[in-house]
Design a binder for these strands. Structure first.
Lengths: 300, 300
DNA sequence: TTCTATGTTTGAAATTATAAAAAACTCTTG
DNA sequence: CAAGAGTTTTTTATAATTTCAAACATAGAA
């Protein structure tokens, strides 16, 4: 009933590794030096030293600590199975919401989600607290959390917000200096778009990835932490919906390729007005696609 | 060492009040009906009934429960002092950061903050998790949290983001129908601006509040949860800095009043380009003010 | 029976308690 | 007096515990 000692265990193994680089009889460095090496506090180092002493690897008496034996692989202590990475949680959570089409106003059980996603409860709670800033979940008065859900309204507002951010990004690209990496990237993307268009009949599924790259390239010009944070969520949601709405997928993707190319052309011509117009057109199409994919889900 | 029973206590008092509206001998409604009345689960109601029974206010035997005596004010149970509202936490936290000019890269002690703000620790952690989405705080590898801080970069990015949102809002206002409430609000604000300008010599402090109202009015036209969420943080930060940067405060405010009036005029003339230009000018001034207030702090 | 209200069980959320870790502080010794 | 070891205090991460919600089961009335 307390915090885990993973930190100590990892530190012990790290110190063990360090010791095996020394010769028998060498004095070990000071506790504070060791704490630097292992990246933990002195408290942990002292626990490690105590264990090393106990196991006969060192002789420890105050400042005197000598290496008695060189530890091997077998002497390391076992670590509890590392659970799933927290960076991944957002992706997996949205994946779950979208893939299983979890309805709006579903109560979320922190305990259950933590089990399913294999993360500690408090980590999940923190994650939900973060998501609540995007208005996707909210606290309930009776306690617990609630998925506000991927409703039509949410989709509309998300699309609109995306448009605002992306039109702004377009403006930045037009003003980007000639040596800005975005130009090389756009040239490359143009080739990829043309190549995909040539083999669209069989390979239209490949568009989804290309779409993401394209929008990422545009938005990468805007260096802004707030924009970046939103972009992550936005691109995930659009990405999934692109994947799942199967109606006229080939035609849609082919049309989108042309829209992308129109934007690239206008940008390379440094024609801000044309680029903005092309982007506006493309974003409107995207919004329609997103909304119709919601309708398709509703009917299913 | 467990969750508080505030819910039960509040429910008990509410049921007590309900009972005092009945006559002695009346049968009480079903448990589920009572749970509706008090807004809690049946579990809590049963605890309340048990206490009512114990204290002799009702006779309870299965479905038979009659009122034996009418409870008075003195029979209510006391509630633990409600601690500060969580809605307020954000305002108080930012107030603390900005007012005391907490430097960037300050480690935040959850324990200490929770004490000072008089909220449970886990509430504070959730709050910080939410803030981390805005890039104002982040987790540390050694555990705990870190204030990334109100750096110059943060201010620049915040200002830029604000401009993007607000210019978008301006576009929405121009397109708003004549019967939209924003027009009445703007007309009113114009009067207030003119009135304040007339007495600016003595009352220039009053501008800060007017500034907030003005920007809120503009942004209220955009119905978007993402925008709204950011607006709260943005307006708080700008509000505080307006208050604290005392250099040329009167002149600055007087100039800002004119800038606001220019925007209002352009909007009422439905001149989108002029409104945008006026807003852009005003936002640039705001950004400069924000940045110079940071410099002033640095020197202090 | 069928419906409704109560009794019962189960599971989750909020809050506290506590081990582990960090950090601050004091004491020794070269 | 440094630099490092010993010690204490504080803080964080997590489990334990209680309260609460809700599902399930049962019994009495229509």
């Amino acid at each position: 009933m307390a915090r885990s000692d993973t930190r100590y265990r990892e530190a012990y193994n790290r110190i063990l590794d360090y010791c095996s680089t020394l010769a028998v009889g060498t004095p070990l460095p000071a506790e504070s030096a060791l704490s630097e090496i292992a990246g933990v506090s002195r408290t942990v180092i002292r626990r490690c030293l105590a264990r090393l002493d106990e196991n006969g690897f060192i002789a420890w008496d105050g400042r005197e600590k000598h290496l008695l034996a060189i530890p091997g692989k077998a002497d390391r202590i076992s670590l509890p199975d590392a659970h799933a990475s927290p960076d991944d949680l957002e992706r997996r959570f949205l994946d779950w919401v979208l893939r299983f089409d979890v309805p709006a106003n579903t109560p979320l059980s922190v305990a259950e989600l933590a089990r399913n996603f294999d993360v500690p409860q408090h980590e999940l709670k923190e994650f939900l607290a973060g998501l609540s800033r995007f208005g996707l979940v909210a606290r309930r008065k009776q306690g617990g959390w609630m998925l506000l859900g991927f409703t039509r309204e949410f989709a509309v507002e998300l699309s609109d917000f995306r448009s605002v951010l992306e039109l702004n990004a377009i403006g930045h690209v037009v003003d980007a200096p000639v040596d800005h990496p975005v130009w090389a990237r756009l040239a490359q993307l143009r080739d990829e778009h043309i190549a995909l268009k040539a083999r669209i009949e069989h390979d239209f599924h490949a568009f989804s990835e290309l779409d993401e790259s394209f929008h990422e390239a545009i938005n990468s010009v805007v260096r802004n932490r707030f924009v970046a944070e939103f972009q992550k969520v936005i691109s995930l949601i659009f990405h999934y919906h692109y994947l799942w709405d199967k109606t006229h997928e080939k035609d849609r993707n082919e049309a989108a390729i042309d829209e992308h190319l129109a934007i690239i052309n206008a940008l390379e011509a440094r024609d801000g007005a044309a680029a903005r117009a092309a982007a506006q057109h493309h974003l409107r199409t995207s919004k329609t696609t997103l909304l119709s994919s919601l309708r398709a889900h509703d009917l299913a």
